[in-house]
Design a protein around this nucleic acid. Sequence first.
DNA 1: CCGCGATCATTAGCATACAAACGAAGTTCC
DNA 2: GGAACTTCGTTTGTATGCTAATGATCGCGG
Lengths: 138, 138
Amino acid sequence: MTLPYVLEQQVGFVLRQVNQRHLALFGEMMIGELTPTQFSAIVKLREHGSCSQNRLGRLTAMDGATIKGVIDRLTRRGITETSPDPDDARLLMVSLTAAGRRLAEQAVPCAARITEATLAPLSTAERARLLALLDQLR
Amino acid sequence: MTLPYVLEQQVGFVLRQVNQRHLALFGEMMIGELTPTQFSAIVKLREHGSCSQNRLGRLTAMDGATIKGVIDRLTRRGITETSPDPDDARLLMVSLTAAGRRLAEQAVPCAARITEATLAPLSTAERARLLALLDQLR
DNA sequence: CCGCGATCATTAGCATACAAACGAAGTTCC
DNA sequence: GGAACTTCGTTTGTATGCTAATGATCGCGG
């Protein structure tokens, strides 16, 4: 006797839907037309000051091809800027512009509200439990 | 005094990474070059026999534009086939081909193993807890 | 039976994501 | 000092996934 396969109870399917809801909330609530990945890059640049493009990708869990597209779009909008590293000709250093730093200041509290909205159905204890469980699957 | 904003502890960021890991496992372990969304469509067609394209999208949590691309690719590979509904000229009915049904039989147990691999770090009780928590955020 | 709103499929545009392949540039080891 | 390996950035191709617009069709109310 085999357990039935119920798509709606599979972790991958549920994960995709939870992610969809979070993405929708992010799209509604975030300022400056920032996407979650663009916001991640900005946060890490704010912490690290300046960073090579690939290293920024590792900090934000994006591969080289993906982070390049993200930085290209942010740079086109004047939020980030790039320059070659004088000591290592392979590296493309990325940093926030002044406008990017101003945007980051406003975006971080906004992102905190988005996290709150995403987790709204859960109590404080449940939120901690969820994060701890997800962390093991990372 | 404000809590610091730690990107790595935000539910959206963790969710994206867990999803990445699941997608990687899916890519390694699934047969027939099926992606998670393609597999979802196949499972639902197997349950429902035949289904309009948009309704299939609702069953699998994909919007009209996305499900169309998925079905186009499956049809191009001979896994699904489409036909107009004789009673409602707006509908495009989608169903599995014989090859699609054979593939579905093998893919479902494979998907069960992928779910198992994704949840491997958790105990049975933890898995149930995680699913219950995620379900509330759907 | 006619208009109006709803549904359906399609298309275009944008933004992730990953794999694979490439050349350029470092690093290590003999 | 040179070969082998690694890292980095880039490009190409494929697959989601969303929004918005479009046109066809359906159902309902008057």
